[in-house]
Measured scan of single mutants.
Amino acid sequence: VGDQVLEIVPSNEEQIKNLLQLEAQEHLQLDFWKSPTTPGETAHVRVPFVNVQAVKVFLESQGIAYSIMIED
Rank of each mutant, 00 (worst) to 15 (best):
L20Q: 08
S11P: 02
V1W: 14
S35R: 15
L20F: 11
S67M: 09
L30Y: 02
N12L: 02
T42N: 05
L59H: 00
H27M: 06
S11M: 15
I8W: 01
Q62C: 09
A24P: 03
G63R: 03
E26Q: 12
S61R: 09
E7F: 07
M69K: 07
D72L: 14
P10H: 01
Q25T: 11
A43L: 15
V57T: 13
A54V: 13
D72Q: 12
I68M: 06
T38E: 09
S35H: 15
R46L: 10
A65K: 13
V1N: 13
L19V: 06
E60W: 04
K34H: 08
E71G: 11
E23R: 12
S67N: 13
W33H: 10
Q21C: 07
L30C: 05
T38D: 07
F49K: 12
N18G: 14
F32E: 02
Q15Y: 01
A65M: 11
P10K: 01
E14F: 10
L6M: 09
F58A: 03
T38S: 11
E14G: 06
A24M: 09
E14N: 08
K17G: 08
S35W: 14
Q53D: 14
V1H: 15
M69W: 11
L28N: 03
V57M: 14
L20M: 15
Q4G: 03
Q4A: 13
V45T: 01
V50L: 14
L6Y: 06
P48M: 03
S11E: 14
Y66N: 01
A24V: 09
L6K: 00
I64S: 00
P48V: 03
E13W: 15
H44D: 02
T42R: 08
Q62E: 07
N18F: 13
L20A: 07
E23N: 13
A65P: 13
L19N: 00
L19R: 00
K34V: 08
L22N: 02
T42F: 06
E7L: 14
Q29S: 09
L6I: 08
I68P: 04
L59Q: 00
S61E: 13
E7W: 11
V5I: 11
V9Q: 08
A54K: 12
P39C: 04
V55K: 00
V5P: 02
D72I: 11
Y66L: 01
V57C: 08
Q15K: 02
I64G: 00
V55Q: 00
A65D: 14
A43C: 08
P36R: 00
V9M: 14
F32T: 02
V45F: 03
F58N: 02
D31E: 09
Q15L: 01
K56E: 04
N18I: 15
Q53G: 10
T42Q: 06
I64H: 00
G63K: 07
H44Y: 15
M69S: 06
Q15R: 00
Q25H: 08
S61A: 11
V1I: 14
E13C: 07
Q62M: 14
E14V: 06
W33D: 09
E26M: 11
Q53R: 06
S67L: 07
